[in-house]
Design a protein around this nucleic acid. Sequence first.
DNA 1: TTTATATATCGTAATAATACGATAAAGGTT
DNA 2: AACCTTTATCGTATTATTACGATATATAAA
Lengths: 106, 106
Amino acid sequence: MGTSKKEKFSTSQNRLADLAKALGHPARIAILQFLAAKDVCICGDIVDELPLSQATVSQHLAELKQAGLIKGEIEGPKVCYCINKKAWQEAKQLLAQFMTDVKSCC
Amino acid sequence: MGTSKKEKFSTSQNRLADLAKALGHPARIAILQFLAAKDVCICGDIVDELPLSQATVSQHLAELKQAGLIKGEIEGPKVCYCINKKAWQEAKQLLAQFMTDVKSCC
DNA sequence: TTTATATATCGTAATAATACGATAAAGGTT
DNA sequence: AACCTTTATCGTATTATTACGATATATAAA
């Protein structure tokens, strides 16, 4: 019964939902804020910043990567993570447009 | 093991994540768009608009209500749903600020 | 080559989310 | 009162998410 009905909704509704879902965990918010605060690509360090195990952080990073919001480049034994500029602007625009379009009447 | 570690993150990180999570399903995106398109509070009708059962729609509405994004007023045997204007503006501002703050470096 | 370091992935357990039928609750209609 | 309509809630099945230890992988250093 818990089968997903996502295919019954439009592509753009699903894209918005996927983006929002990627932001839907405080650890992922924290990761993005950390990446932003440094203003450069971060090589290593991320696991130490979060109160979660290495495996769990890696999983959250993979989800952000899957949503296209970050990218990771292998640099020696480490991986350098960055916000994906293009995708981020796109996501920002999509969400902002959606939030603006949804006018409230009362 | 799947115990939540949300308490290890800040209130604002959790608030952002909760808002995003509420938007993290195409059915809820569709509900919000439907409410917006009518530009008035919608009494009834919502279930007929979605390819989901009445019980499931009611559950999605409850989640949006829980996040504070919509409110429902009982009108006779029906319920009138509306975007919660104040909360919506707040959410929009919070998300926009977050998306802007997260600058990408590459 | 051995060792250390950094990440990813596997396996798995626990919890949360999704979905729906059945039923309850509340208000209107006849 | 009996009945219909609308919505919420309960019970429950299924799937997804979250989390972590253990292990694999890949690179650098000794």
